[in-house]
Design a protein around this nucleic acid. Structure first.
Lengths: 219, 219
DNA sequence: ACTATAAGATACGGGACCGTATCTAAGGAA
DNA sequence: TTCCTTAGATACGGTCCCGTATCTTATAGT
């Protein structure tokens, strides 16, 4: 009730500050805007402060419209991450191990570590530390569902072609590249450049699989 | 005001459920209880939901007592983490590189990855992703202030004694062990066992510094 | 143009925290 | 014992978010 008969009060609707309230969005367009808003909110405030009202505000829509489709902020982010996640499989050849490893880590960097995705992923990983179901969901719906294992794919490929001793391919070795990228992201937030990725390959992965480039170790 | 003159109402004070409200704590004893409560709250709910009221509740004290000493929940956790952080320096000998590396990673595991500390650290690292000042503070007041660099210390030591080619010791190589422990913690939460640490050393670090154990690579 | 559908605006009552003020009372020190 | 410091209990007014209900209206489909 309260003041129903207001028909035209002068302004065109909701939030003034941000945008001039263009048209009314629906369907995919609206959903995409909400997904983006959810990711931005997560990146800015973290999972713990992620809120339906915050997402609605940022997306320039009404809370009602969110509850129509989702029942928690978390559902929105997960869906958003899932949809946006690029994640092509690395497709290695068979005669440039170094190049293919670099390519796979570059792929990972670009997919997972741009500023927005990286922060969202970090926030989700942290939250999933406390919530096993979320952890499960994250790995099942997002990581595993999309290939996920970057250097692993390359290394297995080369092993199958007899260029790597299969005995070298342990879980630890599969993780070296991803682990170093992860650590880079954690302690110097920001994005590792191509040289750093090359260094990971030359100085950590290749030695571990027995392709130590004894000659020229770059500083 | 409201009902001031209640002198003895029967119960002995605050929260019923948990403890029989023993004595009144003060000074260090109280502070320690609050520190612990703050860490537990962080581990359970994350930085984003860390709250003065929550800490007070868990510590069995009054909000007032918190504000007397700190002005935000974050201040409490940081102080708590700083005080509790064990962090002995690894003290390598000079003729058991493998053993000393394992020891340094074991030290790190035990210091940083027990369930409570690990979760608090994770939560703080995540939060610091969004707040550069916190990141700065965390690394300055906690990590660097306490030595922090585990395998690095060992590797440098052996390089000084001529047992490792110094050209091999790049930032990437210094990070391998810590990175793999970090990744372990992130994707299979839980604590890596001794075998896993040995695998990190044998399969990743030693090869990277040119001590590849060609002979017996464990599966 | 007409109609069903979905978006948007608004208003609740309810709950959790905030940060502060105020008062009681316990524990130590003199 | 007496006194002083400090812990503890409680109550605010304020803000933010929850989840739902209600009503209006833009838009797509026919």
């Amino acid at each position: 009730m309260t003041d129903r008969k207001r028909t035209a009060e002068g302004d065109r609707g909701g939030a003034e500050g941000a945008g001039p309230r263009a048209k009314r969005r629906r369907g995919e367009e609206l959903i995409a805007a909400i997904h983006r808003a959810a990711m931005e909110e997560t990146a800015e405030h973290g999972m713990g402060r992620l809120t339906m009202e915050g997402i609605a505000r940022r997306a320039g829509t009404a809370k009602t419209s969110l509850y129509r489709r989702w029942s928690s902020p978390e559902d929105i982010v997960l869906e958003a991450l899932y949809r946006v996640y690029p994640m092509e499989e690395p497709s290695p050849g068979a005669d440039d191990l170094r190049g293919d490893l670099i390519a796979s880590l570059t792929l990972m960097r670009d997919a997972l570590m741009d500023s927005l995705h990286g922060k969202v992923m970090g926030a989700l990983l942290d939250e999933s530390t406390r919530r096993p179901e979320l952890h499960e969901r994250l790995y099942r719906e997002v990581f595993d569902a999309r290939g996920g294992r970057f250097t692993r794919t390359v290394l297995l490929h080369y092993a199958e072609h007899g260029r790597i001793d299969p005995a070298r391919l342990t879980p630890v070795v599969f993780d070296i590249g991803e682990a170093l990228l992860l650590k880079y992201g954690v302690d110097s937030f920001g994005i590792p450049d191509d040289d750093y990725i090359a260094a990971i390959v030359d100085q950590a992965i290749l030695p571990a699989v027995g392709h130590a480039p004894e000659g020229p170790p770059a500083g």
